[in-house]
């Protein structure tokens, strides 16, 4: 059995859980919970807050989608999560300019971990206040060859499109490396 994985990252509330849930065949296993009481807070520190989705391709192949934890104190996990990943998606809430700088920081961190392909999903494009993907390209200083895709994580087709574009980028890189 071969297991391959992709990482879905981005600032808090960008839509990672929604994105994984849209295509995963199992319920997104998220142990993240709202911190409402001191008791729960303690529980939280002992839990790994991470989304986890699965797409079975066949008896011998399965794809896992990992969402990075929302809280900064879990940043140390990024490095571990990124090991062996096929590629990653950086999700941005297009309606929240206050998160763009954080998104750039996350993107640059993941880029430094791995030279795997990635795409940026300009999420929540169904909302009126959404900034345009091409504006986000400039703001995030994306290189021309990095795709930035309009995304609505609540829409399965939109999520499929983002994953497919990432897979096409992975194919392209494979072809380049084998030349």
């Amino acid at each position: 059995m071969q297991a391959v994985k992709m990482v879905i990252t981005g600032p808090f509330s960008a839509g990672k859980t929604e994105f994984i849930g849209a295509v995963s065949e199992i319920d997104v296993v998220s142990t993240e919970r709202k911190i409402s009481s001191a008791a729960e807070q303690i529980k939280e520190t002992t839990t790994v807050a991470m989304d986890f989705g699965r797409i079975t391709v066949g008896d011998d192949l399965v794809l896992y989608l990992f969402g990075t934890p929302g809280q900064r104190r879990f940043d140390f996990m990024w490095d571990i999560l990124s090991q062996g990943m096929l590629g990653f998606v950086v999700m941005v809430d297009s309606t929240k300019p206050e998160t763009f700088r954080e998104a750039k920081r996350i993107l640059e961190t993941f880029e430094s971990y791995a030279s795997t392909p990635y795409v940026v999903a300009a999420n929540k494009q169904d909302m009126e206040d959404a900034w345009e993907p091409e504006d986000l390209r400039i703001i995030l200083r994306l290189r021309q060859e990095v795709k930035i895709l309009p995304c609505v994580a609540t829409d399965k087709e939109s999520v499929k499109n983002v994953l497919l574009e990432l897979l096409y980028s992975i194919l392209e890189q494979l072809d380049q490396n084998s030349q």
Partner: peptide, 30 residues
């Protein structure tokens, strides 16, 4: 891709050695 534990990485992680056919199957599945 399925390498076990390893010492803290110094350099940039390289992409896993995955076959083209695997990626193509993933595309069809999605």
């Amino acid at each position: 891709a399925d390498q076990g534990r390893r010492p803290k990485r110094q350099a940039v992680e390289q992409p896993p050695d995955v076959k083209r056919s695997v990626v193509e199957r993933l595309i069809d599945r999605i």
